[in-house]
């Protein structure tokens, strides 16, 4: 249990000392994961809602795919994005490999199915309740989407947080497409993996505690936001 004690002390020191390297890593982690979640949310919410509201050929297949991709292994997502962004791949000309942008793309791929699939479920349930009323009030299906997303916001915040949890916790994808370059693409999870492989377990665990604090802080902020929304809207 010695290393666990050390880990708490290490984590404490890391936070108190505001180590600039660690600060940079934390900020990059937040930047990459929040960007990925934001983009996935902007695509996933309307996509999930559209799948919930419209019936079209292949819809069942799409839903199955979205649900299945919720469990996409990060390493596989990383490999797919690597092959796309590699110089020998279709998007190679943009030179995005081993940059934070590549990490955002890979995490987006991991998060999008979660947000889209859970949004579909939330919106479909709401639609059962709302369909007649909204139609009566003169809303088209397309116009109903923002209304339903807004009314489902409390559940959807949880959905987005689930996406953020996945993004900030994964290491496989960012390691492959980011390369864990010191000061450029090193984020919390890849730093933890690195320190583990260097055998510095207290530091690795300390970084892990800092990561958990970071995720908890984001969740806490979202919780407060949700509570104020709940109070406003009942």
């Amino acid at each position: 249990m010695e290393s666990a004690d050390n880990a708490f002390i290490t984590a404490f020191h890391l936070i108190v000392s505001m180590d600039p390297v660690l600060t940079g890593i934390v900020l990059l982690s937040l930047q990459v994961s929040l960007s990925a979640v934001l983009i996935a949310t902007l695509i996933g919410l309307p996509l999930g809602a559209a799948v919930a509201l419209w019936r079209f050929p292949g819809r069942g297949l799409l839903i199955t795919l979205l649900n299945a991709f919720m469990g996409l292994p990060p390493v596989v997502a990383g490999l797919m994005v690597y092959l796309m962004l590699s110089r020998a791949g279709p998007l190679g000309q943009f030179g995005l490999l081993f940059t934070p942008t590549a990490m955002v793309i890979a995490q987006c791929l991991l998060v999008l199915p979660i947000i889209a699939a859970l949004t579909r479920q939330v919106v479909e349930d709401l639609w059962k309740e709302y369909a007649e009323q909204l139609k009566s009030l003169g809303a088209s299906r397309a116009r109903a989407i923002p209304t339903l997303l807004w009314d489902g916001r409390i559940s959807l915040v949880t959905t987005v947080l689930a996406g953020f949890g996945r993004a900030s916790a994964e290491v496989g994808a960012v390691l492959i497409v980011g390369g864990n370059i010191d000061g450029v693409t090193r984020v919390m999870t890849t730093a933890i993996a690195l320190e583990t492989s260097r055998g510095d377990l207290p530091l690795a665990l300390g970084l892990g505690l800092v990561l958990m604090l970071m995720v908890a802080a984001v969740n806490g902020a979202a919780f407060l936001l949700g509570e104020s929304a709940r109070r406003q809207a009942g």
């Binding site: 995005l96 940059t99 450029v184």
Partner: peptide, 8 residues
């Protein structure tokens, strides 16, 4: 933030 990440 997202857009800036490519130009670090």
């Amino acid at each position: 933030l997202a857009l800036s990440s490519g130009t670090v």
